[in-house]
Amino acid sequence: MTPRAGMGRNARQRDARTGSRLFLGLLWLLFGLPLPVLALWAAAPGWAWPDLWPAALGGRTAAFVLANRQSIVGALASSTLYSLAVVAVTLCACLAPARLLAFGRFRGRGALEGLLLAPALLPAMGCALGLYGTLVRLGLADTPAGVVLVLSVVSYPYMLRALASGFETMGQEYGRCAANLGAGPWTRLVVVELPLLLPAAVAGGSVVFLVAFSDYFLVQLVGGGVVPSFTGYLFPVLQSPDRGLAAMLSLVFLLVPVALFVLAEGLVLAVYRRRGM
């Protein structure tokens, strides 16, 4: 018997609560600390080594962002646009195959799924460098279309997996009932299945968006620096000794995904509330 067995009920509960608080504190220290540290670095003109708090705070990096707002906003907008395009392309390409993987029962289904998920498992560079010469010849290198194509190629498995498990959760009954009531395939898809798939599509879309928006290497390779991207703007600064500016731009980077996720959550809630689901 542990000594705790002899404790009163209240004492044990208090003990458990302290444990939970400690664990939560550990989580915040581990995962929450980087953001305030980035904010401090962004505000500090210099942060000499043994100091745990910068000696002075100022607005140098904020002034830089303001002065260069045109190129920064341009890079953010370009990254957002091509990432949204990647989400749209992967969503359109994956709907029918995801349904097939979720509901189809046929020989070789496992092998087919493995083949379809391969781009997420094999190194993206192995495909991208081989494809690069062809993209140049096709005139797709250094164009947004080429960037969208290559990013879609490496990120569609996440969408496929999310939609397939969405279809599995939904089951086939809704579609069948609609069909029995006389709905054609198109009505069935748009009116019945897509609203039910919305959470899965948002989940898959978030991952695909993050992969596309955070990617540095493929965008730099295929976009050739001609297609503006925020990671392309950020990377040289991260490599430079100017840690303050690097921290500031890292925080600016986070604005878009955070804003978009809040919007997406709001959209799902609004749609479901309007349809009374």
């Binding site: 097939l100 509901f103 379809l116 781009p119 081989g130 494809l131 496929l160």
Partner: peptide
Amino acid sequence: PGGRSPAWRGAALCPLLVLLLPFLAG
């Protein structure tokens, strides 16, 4: 719905070929 026949299955996979073929080609 997805598994009516091999032809139907092939048709369901068509949109994804746009992305799978460049991968395999690469």
